[in-house]
Amino acid sequence: MASAVRSARLYGLLLLADVRSRMQYRANYILLMITILPTQLLTLAFVWMLVQRFGRINGWGFWELAFLNGLIRVPQGIGYVFRSVMFVENYILAGTLDKFLLRPRDVLCQTIAERCNFASFFGEAVPGLAILAASAHQLRLAFGALDVLYLAAALAGGTMIYLGLMVAQGAACFFTLRGSALRTFMLTTQEYTSYPLTIYHPLLQLLLTFVLPFAFINFYPAHHFFRPGPAPFAPWLAYLTPALGAAVMYGAWRLWRAGLARYQGAGS
């Protein structure tokens, strides 16, 4: 237990060291935080224009869609703090990974703690929460204790799914040596979460549910609140988000271990 506390303290210090390094270039850091926000608002403005022009989208009005957006912003904003874990090939090329392997500490934890980007927490996760609150207010959602609990669990599960996918993508760099193709695939697939799953071709629904399960982060939980029509596949999928989050994280961890073993030459 004491050693767990010491470890947590260490990784906190490592993250802080990175923040302090970045503070050497303070103007750049603040600019970064400021520039994230308008891109968020732009997505929402676009959604608003669509609704103005075409009316409700498959039964989803503007505030429902805003809620859908808020639900992905929060996990994404938190996940993006550790976004460098997706760029493992850079660590391999720069010898940073060897540096981690030379130390008596877990390599994944060191990788995650090497660089952090708190700008996306303040520029994305916090506004995401605000959007969630605003749309819940506008929609006059009667939040009982169970609903709050469900929302918290969905956000936690969604964050775990997001982090897990990022780590898995990073681990894939060990096998592909260059991560850009997979990264682009993941980031473009993620774009589809801005609209309800039901508007897409069934194949895309399949992809977003069972392959890269982004739909569990925002679509199914949002659908659970509004039920603007039948859910694709099954409505009870909305309850799976937290469990799936744990499963994705575990799977990502296994993949990371296999990838690292391959890098060291113990695997394959």
Binding site: R6, R9, L10, A17, Q24, K99, R103
Partner: peptide, 25 residues
């Protein structure tokens, strides 16, 4: 490794030593 450094580039030398103190307990 002479061609690389394990020090924190943008921080004072002392800070790297402090971090290593925690890394090695």
């Amino acid at each position: 490794f002479g061609q690389r450094t394990q020090l924190w580039w943008d921080l004072p030398v002392r800070d790297s030593f402090e971090l290593l103190r925690h890394i090695y307990d």
